[in-house]
Amino acid sequence: MSSRRTLAPYLLLIPGLAPIIVLMTLVIGMAVSQSVTWTDVSGKVSLSLEAWRVTFESDQFWRAFLYSARIGTLGAILSVAFAYPVALWLRRPFAGSDLVSALIKAPILVHGLVAAFLYVNFVSFQGFLNVALVGLGLAARPIRMQNDPYAIGVVVLQVWKNMPLAFLILSGSVRAISDDVLNAARDLGAGTFGRLRRVVLPLTLRSLQAALIIIFIGAAGDYTFQAVAGPTSLNSMAQFMVRMETDNGLQGVSLAAVVAVMLMGLSLCGSILLAGLMQFLVKRAGR
């Protein structure tokens, strides 16, 4: 009877957990194994690090890698930086606070592709922004902003789409801080800023990290924003991976697999670095 008891939770885990583990293992295994195989011109498949060598020697790959790392970092940090003060502001309800939090959450309801379209439409030659700039006499002729080379559009979209997500994650933990704790801090003579540094930041560290990680992984692996609104002279990692697969015939899968493994690595390392950085900053601030 007791063995059945101890086994029960594990058996219950199977339907939910097993599909996840099976698929993830298969996908990661497939990516890693493809990355170390190479098909030569005659169609012979062999175990080789050739795909890694070719990829690492390619400037384009490193530019895609750094680009995705940059978009991921900027997207995550800016989203959180905008969401955090708002979450703090809306910590205690006041007249109109429900309205504001509903407005902030609205972009979650808009599909990323729709957002990308709205943005491109907004900044296009006939878009509102240009009509306004010309109408106000700030520009003689409409300015070309579509697919801008600095990827400002992609960052704007990432922040637009992810800031509400960060807000949701952060506002939960900000609200969970009890007034007692804050009042106690106030009684001990801590000012507004002191309370923020010593009490609020440390208590919300976990959700700050969670928000950074989730947004970083999404933004670094982005394909659609980049394809619709990104610079045409650069590829994101996901785009580069798809291009490697389609443009390289027999070797395509191996090259794409290397990019895939590197993208997974980027997601992992980037998440750890951002989380670590956040922890370091919060600890510093708390001193």
Binding site: S124, F125, Q126, P142, R144, Q146
Partner: peptide, 11 residues
Amino acid sequence: NDSVSRVNSGE
């Protein structure tokens, strides 16, 4: 199509 819509808009 992007080329066409942008020549059409005068860009």
